[in-house]
Amino acid sequence: MMDRMALVVGVDYYSDQHIQNLSGCVNDAKEVARLLKYNGDSSRSRNFDCKELYAIDPSHAVNRAVIKDEARRLFQSKAEIALFYFSGHGYIESTGGFINGSDSTRGDDGLSLRELVDLANSSSSRHRIIILDSCYSGAAGSIPGLENHAAIAEGVTILTASRSDQPSLERDGHGVFTGLLINALEGAASNLTGSITPGSVYAHIDQSLGMWDQRPVFKTNTDSFVSLREISPAISLDDLRKLKTLFPTEDHEYKLDPSYESRDEGRTDIMPRADPRNNQVFSLLQKYNRHGLLVPVGANHMWNAAMESKTCRLTLLGKHYRRLAVQDLL
């Protein structure tokens, strides 16, 4: 999808001796770019057209002006999705937050988060996404003096590593936040259809960090989530669509009997023999069960439900996917 554009920036090198160089930002940014460029499904289709800026040493510096100019180019595009990712030093003061390029000397001479968000707010791209792994990045989109209020336009989503009063931590040479972001993009944050959205990424990161850890911040003003990356679905769409056939209503209980179980273990002479057609259906029902779409009724396991001629019913998640199937949204 070449109507998706991403600007990925990683800054390890800082020219001023008073600003400590970093060690993991470039590697983190490269990994994020690698995952954004291609989907992870069987087709390995193109995803984002990525521009990458990496500050490694004096001959590969990335200064504030370059970051701002390229961010402007990104958000002036008419891409369906314009995504900005930054990993590097951040700074906060009473007037707001900043992200720092290689030429920063005092923090507040970096690119203002207000400027960055203004570029996204004024963009004609349908979806504008800002992801920041920098200290105090939670200030992005906030109004100085009114920190509990966000000023983001419709279609803008912001995901940051930490709150406006927190540093962004590294662990083993990698950012804690971006490590979880990478894990999410690899598939940990996908739904059953294989889609990974900004909301599911945030949920994964949020659940992975305790209340004593740095806390990610998620701000959005959108009426629909867009997929950041597609991976192979846990259950094929064809199999998910079968929910509406196997369960004529969402409260329907599917009746089982021993013919659904292919194994003869525990089968008595009075029980019906295994039926290949029922075995096929049961295999699908067991897959639904493994992914939380249904549960056996009156039995601890699906095997017991079949051998004891019990039923199985949809969970709330199963009912959700059945509705999608009924509405032809899968």
Score class of each variant (00 low, 15 high):
residue 282 F to H: 06
residue 152 I to W: 09
residue 45 S to V: 02
residue 252 H to T: 14
residue 155 G to M: 06
residue 197 T to G: 03
residue 246 L to R: 06
residue 288 Y to P: 05
residue 97 G to F: 10
residue 69 D to L: 12
residue 294 L to Q: 06
residue 128 R to V: 06
residue 136 Y to I: 11
residue 290 R to W: 09
residue 3 D to E: 07
residue 280 Q to M: 11
residue 63 N to R: 13
residue 65 A to K: 15
residue 283 S to Y: 02
residue 140 A to E: 12
residue 202 Y to T: 08
residue 317 L to A: 04
residue 65 A to N: 13
residue 185 L to S: 10
residue 300 N to T: 12
residue 88 G to T: 02
residue 5 M to L: 14
residue 239 D to V: 04
residue 57 D to P: 13
residue 192 L to N: 03
residue 203 A to R: 13
residue 101 G to F: 14
residue 166 Q to S: 06
residue 68 K to R: 13
residue 105 T to I: 08
residue 229 R to M: 04
residue 324 L to S: 05
residue 247 F to C: 01
residue 307 M to L: 09
residue 242 K to D: 14
residue 262 S to T: 13
residue 123 S to P: 07
residue 127 H to C: 01
residue 157 T to Y: 00
residue 60 H to P: 01
residue 143 I to M: 07
residue 55 A to K: 08
residue 233 P to Q: 13
residue 282 F to L: 01
residue 242 K to A: 04
residue 139 A to Y: 05
residue 263 R to F: 07
residue 155 G to C: 02
residue 86 F to H: 06
residue 257 D to S: 04
residue 235 I to M: 04
residue 240 L to S: 01
residue 285 L to A: 00
residue 239 D to W: 00
residue 53 L to A: 10
residue 114 R to F: 09
residue 183 N to Q: 15
residue 127 H to S: 02
residue 172 D to M: 04
residue 314 L to S: 06
residue 173 G to C: 00
residue 59 S to I: 12
residue 321 Y to I: 10
residue 111 L to H: 08
residue 134 S to C: 15
residue 277 R to F: 14
residue 289 N to E: 15
residue 329 L to G: 01
residue 232 S to K: 01
residue 173 G to N: 02
residue 143 I to W: 09
residue 233 P to W: 12
residue 115 E to F: 04
residue 329 L to R: 14
residue 121 N to V: 13
residue 28 D to G: 04
residue 255 K to S: 15
residue 56 I to M: 08
residue 31 E to V: 05
residue 233 P to F: 06
residue 45 S to E: 14
residue 153 A to D: 06
residue 260 Y to T: 01
residue 43 S to M: 03
residue 272 P to D: 10
residue 172 D to W: 02
residue 153 A to F: 09
residue 132 L to D: 09
residue 22 L to E: 03
residue 159 L to I: 15
residue 312 C to V: 13
residue 179 G to T: 15
residue 11 V to Q: 02
residue 138 G to Q: 11
residue 121 N to L: 14
residue 38 Y to I: 03
residue 107 G to Q: 13
residue 166 Q to I: 05
residue 55 A to M: 08
residue 251 D to W: 00
residue 107 G to A: 09
residue 69 D to V: 03
residue 153 A to M: 03
residue 318 G to Y: 14
residue 11 V to E: 09
residue 185 L to G: 11
residue 43 S to L: 09
residue 220 T to A: 02
residue 187 G to K: 06
residue 78 K to Y: 13
residue 116 L to T: 11
residue 283 S to W: 06
residue 265 E to D: 11
residue 52 E to T: 14
residue 321 Y to R: 05
residue 282 F to S: 03
residue 181 L to N: 05
residue 8 V to L: 06
residue 214 Q to C: 12
residue 245 T to R: 00
residue 128 R to A: 02
residue 209 L to C: 03
residue 221 N to M: 09
residue 64 R to H: 08
residue 173 G to L: 00
residue 48 F to H: 11
residue 37 K to M: 09
residue 244 K to H: 05
residue 175 G to M: 14
residue 275 D to Q: 03
residue 224 S to Q: 15
residue 289 N to D: 08
residue 120 A to G: 14
residue 270 I to Q: 13
residue 150 A to N: 10
residue 82 A to L: 08
residue 290 R to N: 12
residue 245 T to Q: 04
residue 195 S to H: 11
residue 158 I to M: 08
residue 97 G to S: 03
residue 13 Y to R: 08
residue 80 E to I: 07
residue 241 R to E: 15
residue 123 S to E: 05
residue 282 F to V: 00
residue 2 M to R: 06
